[in-house]
Amino acid sequence: MENRPSPRDSQLSHLRASDSNREQIAAVLGEAMSTGQLSHEEYSERLDKLYQAKTVGELQLLTHDLQVDQRPAAANLITPATSSEPDNVIAVFGGTERKGRWRVRRLTRAFAMFGGMRFDLSDAEFEAKEVEIKVTAIFGGAEIVVPEGMEVRSKGVGIFGGFDVHGSANPDPSAPVLVVKGLALFGGVSGKPRR
């Protein structure tokens, strides 16, 4: 029986790879070398590619021809959440921040009133190919930091405020897409790629 990525795998291939994903694949490659499926040279080559990979699909290609028991678990590195409930983030007379390794749901509703919030998507895992953050900022603000290569579609409105969200100048077609909607009333919503 051939080891081929399943249709479900291909649905996840566009998602950004995390350090945890890379560690899992590194373990699979190590086992493949110990069982004689990979020579030391092949193992080194794949390990180099592992740390250059940006998406789950690129990681899956490194193990698709290996017969390793852990491969099915490693191939499904990121699974869509079973719940489609939106994520609600609120900052009233205060602040909140999302950063590090966190899951960006299909829809995030953000409300800032006399407060501020910051979303750093640099190391985030995305629930879908296209995610949406809907921001309402009233006398408050929100800042969004996106990874290099991510496409951003800004559909917000600023009234006595600003709504200025930008993605990468050269988006990666395999990267997730971020849609930012909402309203900035006497407030501001800004976003730009991390340099």
Score class of each variant (00 low, 15 high):
Asn3Val: 11
Pro5Thr: 03
Ser6Trp: 01
Arg8Asp: 06
Arg8Tyr: 13
Asp9His: 15
Asp9Tyr: 10
Asp9Trp: 10
Ser10Val: 13
Gln11Asp: 14
Gln11His: 08
Asn21Gln: 01
Glu23Met: 08
Glu23Asn: 12
Ala27Val: 06
Leu29Asp: 10
Ala32Val: 02
Gln37Leu: 03
Leu38Gln: 09
Ser39Cys: 05
His40Glu: 15
His40Ser: 14
Glu45Val: 07
Arg46Ala: 08
Asp48Ala: 12
Lys49Leu: 14
Tyr51Asn: 02
Tyr51Ala: 03
Gln52Arg: 14
Lys54Asn: 12
Lys54Ser: 10
Lys54Glu: 11
Glu58Lys: 03
Leu59Gln: 00
Thr63Tyr: 03
His64Lys: 15
Leu66Gly: 11
Gln67Ser: 14
Gln67Val: 12
Asp69Trp: 11
Gln70Gly: 08
Gln70Ala: 14
Arg71Leu: 11
Arg71Cys: 07
Ala73Phe: 14
Ala75Thr: 05
Ala75Gly: 01
Leu77Trp: 07
Leu77Ile: 04
Ile78Ser: 13
Ile78Pro: 00
Thr82Ser: 11
Thr82Gln: 12
Thr82Ala: 14
Glu85Ser: 12
Glu85Ile: 11
Glu85Gln: 10
Pro86Val: 12
Pro86Ala: 09
Asp87Lys: 02
Asp87Gly: 03
Asp87His: 05
Ala91Ile: 00
Ala91Gln: 07
Val92Asp: 08
Gly94Val: 00
Gly95Cys: 00
Gly95Ile: 05
Thr96Lys: 13
Glu97Cys: 03
Lys99Asn: 13
Trp102Cys: 00
Val104Met: 15
Leu107Asn: 05
Thr108Ile: 12
Thr108Ala: 09
Arg109Lys: 15
Phe111Pro: 03
Ala112Asn: 13
Phe114Val: 01
Phe114Arg: 02
Gly116Val: 00
Met117Ile: 06
Met117Lys: 03
Ser122Met: 10
Ala124Arg: 02
Phe126His: 10
Glu130Ile: 10
Glu130Thr: 14
Glu132Trp: 05
Ala137Val: 01
Ile138Gln: 00
Phe139Leu: 14
Ala142Glu: 13
Ile144Ala: 01
Val145Asp: 07
Val146Pro: 04
Val146Ser: 13
Gly149Arg: 05
Met150His: 10
Met150Gln: 06
Arg153Phe: 02
Ser154Asn: 15
Gly156Leu: 05
Val157Cys: 07
Gly158Asp: 04
Gly158Leu: 00
Gly158Cys: 04
Ile159Phe: 07
Phe160Ala: 08
Gly161Arg: 09
Gly162Arg: 12
Phe163Gly: 06
Val165Met: 00
Asp172Ser: 05
Ser174Ala: 15
Ser174Cys: 13
Val179Leu: 04
Leu183Met: 14
Ala184Glu: 08
Leu185Phe: 15
Gly188Ala: 05
Gly188Pro: 09
Ser190Gly: 15
Pro193Trp: 11
